[in-house]
């Protein structure tokens, strides 16, 4: 029984959970403001979850975690900047940004999927460099694009977008504040959590439709899929489309909660954080579930949130960024080297 439980949880998750518990205890004993810390944990969980959920379709379709997520993220950034350019505010701006992001992300995912189908077996390497390249290409776009809104262009010269665009008064924390309330000093970002739940339900339904099931058959065994009359490339392409569209919508949710749109180099490593989060959650490179994505997102972000203040007090220096790099890269390394199979997808 104990062994069963341990197997299900997995040693890495056990270690990370214990480490997290240790940090929470330490934060408590240092007398840090726990209410703020827990609020931040919940917020970071909510703002990152859709980006992590976006990994599920490609993993399930056998293309591995979507290292090309920045491609989708950039489409989301275009949507968000367009909303500001058109001087939209509040939910209008938010839904406009989402509405533009998703189709753009889908197109990006389609192109990216065409590429993935040509490099089977090397999706992760190719995806990573694809993401890096597209981020660099888009740096030129942000400089050259004919945006006019004074909130976004460089104050001098009037050409090109700033590195960070402030969303104050546009859609800053729009979802976070929706129906939010405070218990024992912990602010619950109700709207954000509801949006996350909605995304989970939609993804859950999608993965159980005939199309979603076909996707996971393709990922599980392409030969089996062919023998069942399925077009393997088609479903891999579709997975890439869905994943990038989710990434595009995901960054809009992320930005509104963060309060800034980060352009230029910012999306560079976002895929890596999402990949490490879902792998921390117990997903393998072949199989991933929504639960794993959520657990992983929570552990990964909770750790980041609490590590900084604790480290500051305990060591008198800022090592949180170093911690984050060690954890995220270490987990990716761990996942790439292990051969065991993940849990059941459904």
């Amino acid at each position: 029984m104990d062994n069963d439980f341990l197997n299900k949880l997995g040693i890495p998750r056990l270690i990370i959970s214990l480490f997290l518990a240790f940090l929470v205890a330490a934060a408590f004993s240092f007398g840090l403001p726990m209410g703020q810390i827990f609020s931040a944990m919940l917020t970071r969980f909510g703002m990152n979850s859709l980006l992590v959920l976006a990994m599920i379709p490609t993993i399930q379709a056998g293309a591995g975690p979507n290292f090309g997520l920045p491609f989708g993220i950039i489409c989301g950034l275009i949507g968000a900047t367009l909303a500001i350019e058109l001087d939209l505010r509040g939910f209008t701006a938010f839904f406009f940004a989402i509405g533009v992001s998703i189709p753009l992300g889908a197109i990006a995912g389609w192109l990216y999927g065409l590429l993935l189908n040509r490099v089977k077996g090397q999706e992760m390497t190719v995806g990573t460099y694809m993401g890096f390249s597209i981020v660099s290409v888009m740096c030129i776009f942000w400089l050259m694009a004919p945006y006019k809104s004074p909130e976004m262009v460089w104050p001098y010269g009037g050409d090109g977008l700033r590195v960070t665009v402030v969303l104050d008064g546009r859609m800053e924390q729009l979802l976070d504040r929706f129906l939010s309330f405070t218990v024992n000093g912990v602010t619950i970002p109700t709207g954000l959590l509801l949006a996350t739940a909605l995304c989970c339900v939609l993804l859950w339904i999608f993965m159980r439709t005939r199309t979603g099931l076909a996707m996971s058959v393709v990922g599980s065994n392409p030969r089996f899929a062919e023998a069942s009359g399925l077009n393997v490339n088609k479903y891999r392409l579709l997975a890439s489309v869905v994943s990038c569209a989710m990434g595009a919508a995901g960054i809009v949710i992320y930005s509104q909660s963060y309060g800034f749109i980060q352009l230029y180099q910012a999306p560079l490593y976002m895929a890596l954080y999402s990949v490490s989060a879902i792998l921390i959650g117990g997903a393998s490179l072949q199989r991933a579930t929504i639960t794993q994505a959520l657990i992983g997102t929570f552990l990964f972000n909770a750790l980041l949130v609490i590590a900084l203040p604790v480290a500051n007090v305990a060591m008198d220096s800022d090592i949180s960024e170093i911690m984050r790099v060690i954890i995220s890269n270490g987990i990716i390394l761990y996942a790439l080297t292990r051969k065991e199979v993940g849990g059941d997808a459904r």
């Binding site: 099931l213 996971s216 058959v217 065994n221 089996f224 069942s228 009359g229 072949q286 993940g342 459904r346």
Partner: peptide
Amino acid sequence: GTGLLLDDSIEFNIVATAIQVQG
């Protein structure tokens, strides 16, 4: 190689083709 989804359950293996081909 062709006959099974090794990392899926028995039940899903049995119905997988019927779902796709016959709905």
